[in-house]
């Protein structure tokens, strides 16, 4: 079956061990207000228009066959003299995509594939089929785990590693900032813990949203003593988060801030005190 992919990135250096190819699924059920991959949100192809370097020649508008609503037909891209327009979102057969990834992957070299998004579980059947096709590569996913428990469990059987986001422990605040409840997420975390699949928890840390000691300790309580947990990565809010919104002609008006470095330190220490390996990444 076909799935919608918005990017294939070879040599993704932040997404797992060794050489990694990251495949980004398009479409996400969450609406995290700090999302820095807005082109991954909608489950349909979209036009991406880079305004930097635009010479306002108007040829794209002249070439457009649908005068009002953009259907992402991509007709305009050919007419941009500066090459600033492209379509994000391409439909791939699972077998073709797996072949594309595997063929470029050098034999005998440490590494594998990491499926990311968007949200991979927005396309569950495609995900399962793709994972099957990707054997014998080392397979990882990066997920919010906001999905049905049985699908999550089925996917775990086909995975060698999981990166799971846990954003906010308090359900009300989770709803407020991401648009969805964290009940399913936390339930799936339990499934993950008992699955035997090694995993890393990623926490985007946003000042005043989820950088309290209480939030991190609640997370720690759930993770304490879990042998398959490799580490908790604290990722400070990306101040470049708004960079890609203009490409979609969207506005980004949030004014989030990353936490102070000392706060990140405190959070990492709090986890360490619970015997949970933690690290934090500075902004690139």
């Amino acid at each position: 079956m076909k799935g919608l992919i918005f990017s294939i990135e070879e040599f993704a250096v932040h997404d797992g061990d060794g050489l990694r190819t990251a495949v980004f699924f398009k479409g996400c059920p969450l609406r995290c207000r700090w999302c820095h991959n807005p082109e991954g949100l909608l489950p349909k192809p979209q036009r991406i228009r880079n305004h930097n370097g635009c010479v306002q020649c108007g040829r794209c508008a002249g070439a457009c066959p649908t005068s009002d609503d953009c259907t992402a037909c991509g007709h305009c891209a050919a007419y941009c003299p500066m090459g600033l327009i492209r379509i994000a979102g391409e439909y791939w057969e699972a077998a073709d995509l797996a072949l594309r990834v595997k063929r470029s992957f050098p034999a005998g070299v440490k590494g594998g594939v990491t499926l990311s998004g968007g949200e991979v579980f927005m396309q569950p059947q495609f995900l399962l089929e793709l994972l099957e096709c990707l054997k014998p590569l080392h397979r990882a996913i990066e997920t919010s785990a906001y999905c049905a428990q049985d699908v999550f469990a089925q996917a775990l059987e086909k995975l060698e590693f999981v990166f799971m986001d846990v954003k906010i422990m308090d359900d009300e605040r989770h709803c407020h900032y991401t648009g969805v409840s964290n009940q399913r997420i936390l339930a799936n975390l339990e499934t993950l813990k008992s699955s035997g699949v090694p995993f890393t928890i990623r926490v985007p840390v946003i000042a005043g949203v989820n950088d309290s000691l209480e939030n991190i300790r609640q997370l720690g309580d759930r993770l304490r003593g879990c042998a398959t947990l490799r580490t908790v990565e604290l990722l400070p809010y990306n101040t470049m988060a708004g960079a890609k919104y203009p490409l979609l002609d969207w506005n980004y008006e949030e004014t989030f801030e990353p936490p102070e470095p000392s706060r990140l330190n405190q959070l990492a220490d709090a986890l360490s005190q619970m015997d949970i390996p933690a690290k934090y990444r500075r902004q690139a």
């Binding site: 060794g18 070299v109 690139a284």
Partner: peptide, 22 residues
């Protein structure tokens, strides 16, 4: 910016090695 990842040296080294092994 590739080189800002913590294990970037190992990863780039593997990339070079992969070209030679192929």
């Amino acid at each position: 910016t590739v080189f800002k990842a913590e294990d970037s040296v190992e990863k780039v080294a593997r990339l070079v090695q992969s070209f030679m092994l192929q």
